[in-house]
Amino acid sequence: MLAPADFAALWLTAKLATVTTLLLLLIGTPLAWWLARTRSWWKGPLGAVVALPIVLPPTVLGFYLLLLLGPNGPVGRFTEWAGIGLLPFSFGGLVVGSVLYSMPFVVQPIQNAFEAIGDGPLEAAATLRAAPLDAFFSVAVPLARPGFLTATVLGFAHTVGEFGVVLMIGGNIPDQTRVVSVLIYDHVEAMDYAQAHWLAGGMVVFAFLVLLALYLLNSRGRRA
């Protein structure tokens, strides 16, 4: 059966995925909006940078984060200078890693949804004297709802399933960085297969319930 350490890891994973998803929606929405609407030359390069984490193997990404965020890395020097301290081996560090790692899975669905709206509805809103911000919230966002749902689901799921990045910058600290995927790996490496099966099963059930709830919420929202 599941031990207290397993429940702690499940709780931490849920917390990490939730914080990461919320942050990504906050950062990703304006970014996706800009990518969808801009005619700037920078659209190509920036879009490519957002998609980069898909290319890099997670452990490789994690290794370079460890270098970047560490005491000898430029970001690490900055965070120390700013009084935040060093990010590796902390919950905050995992959030930073997860946001980078799951970024494309949130930005791209929202961007696609914004692009699919086209100019028409926004021009109509403008002729009705809606300010740009008003048009964004009362026209663009509701129309892009399916994109937001996909982004939320993918961002959350991708963070729950994250392993390589956390392994590299986490340090396996209980209640701080020991998430479910790392703990399952530990159980397997320690040849404690029964424990691994229970936890993996628990993870699947938990993820299924969260995803199911999201999908049900969406279909009810549409009917209303």
Binding site: F63, L66, L67, L69, G70, P71, N72, L86, P88, F89, L167, M168, G171, N172, I173, V182, Y185, D186, E189
Partner: peptide, 20 residues
Amino acid sequence: RFVQADNIAQAHQFVATGNA
């Protein structure tokens, strides 16, 4: 103050990069 690595290679990496 422990940071746990999954194996001895990763423990070395934590120290070599100055993070520990």
